[in-house]
Amino acid sequence: MSNLAVSADKALTPRDYKSDLAPIWCPGCGDFGVLSAMFKAMSVCNLDPVKTVIISGIGCSSRLPGFVATYGFHGVHGRGLPIATGIKCARPDLNVIVVGGDGDGYSIGGGHLPHIARRNPDITYLVMNNNTYGLTKGQVSPTSMVPLASMEARIDPKRWKTTPYGSTEDPINPVALAVAMDCSFVARGFSYKPNQLADLLVEAMRHRGFSLVDVFSPCPTFNQDQTDEFYKRTTYDIPMDHDPTDRLKAFELASNMESYPLGILYQRPDKASILDEQEALRTRFQGHGSLSELISRFS
């Protein structure tokens, strides 16, 4: 979002973005940290709440729009990105942010990701990745790391209800996918590092084009494997000397499945955007639209 709509009258504090609805998340949910990082990032950017729309799909994390004092759209499972695309194309003047979970964004809605990366609208997409389906109470998600089990030895069925015998399906790597899709801004954060996450979100919002921020946001209720402790152990900050415009380096970093780099992996500031094309078309043909001319063309 290169041209953010900002509040004209005053500098807004993180509290100013808090709605009067209380989050419905379980105690200890990673999404609380994400929400406060968002409040902070919005305050840093001083986003005009009235000209900001937060869109989501369905899932625990997708309830977030209701907790923020902006316009919101809690849509349909997996369809946050195309809904947001419609909003942004129709109203380029608005700040458009999409939030959701890993199931919402990488499974049912996964087919939209390459296309929004191609179109590259000024939209920020924040995925609260908890490696499970929380709202349906603990099934494998596309980012789940389910242990392999032999046919004899069942794994804990309370944890992985639809894969009680384990799974051979590899988890997908969303940031590596996004780099491969040439998504013009790819970052990863961790809900237990809210200051870093807020910084990443600020960068994402200021990025001109589509930005994906994948956030490890552990589910304490249904995922006892990828916990906050797990991610504290396995994540590290991207070295300062990483050049995010180097796509191959970015892909190398993103491909690490042993430990997980946090920060901006990839950025391509010069990628064309569908919004510019649409604006150019409207400008080029402005005032040419005439109903009577159109009718007479067929006469």
């Binding site: 729309v53 195309p82 809904i83 419609g86 909003i87 087919g111």
Partner: peptide, 26 residues
């Protein structure tokens, strides 16, 4: 475009209607 409007070729019909709903809501 000459009528000031915008068109997107969506990736599927679900996205097409989702985009329309987003635009209409805005």
């Amino acid at each position: 475009p000459a009528f000031g409007g915008t068109l997107v070729q969506a990736e599927d019909e679900i996205a097409a209607l989702a985009m329309c709903i987003g635009a209409a809501n805005a």
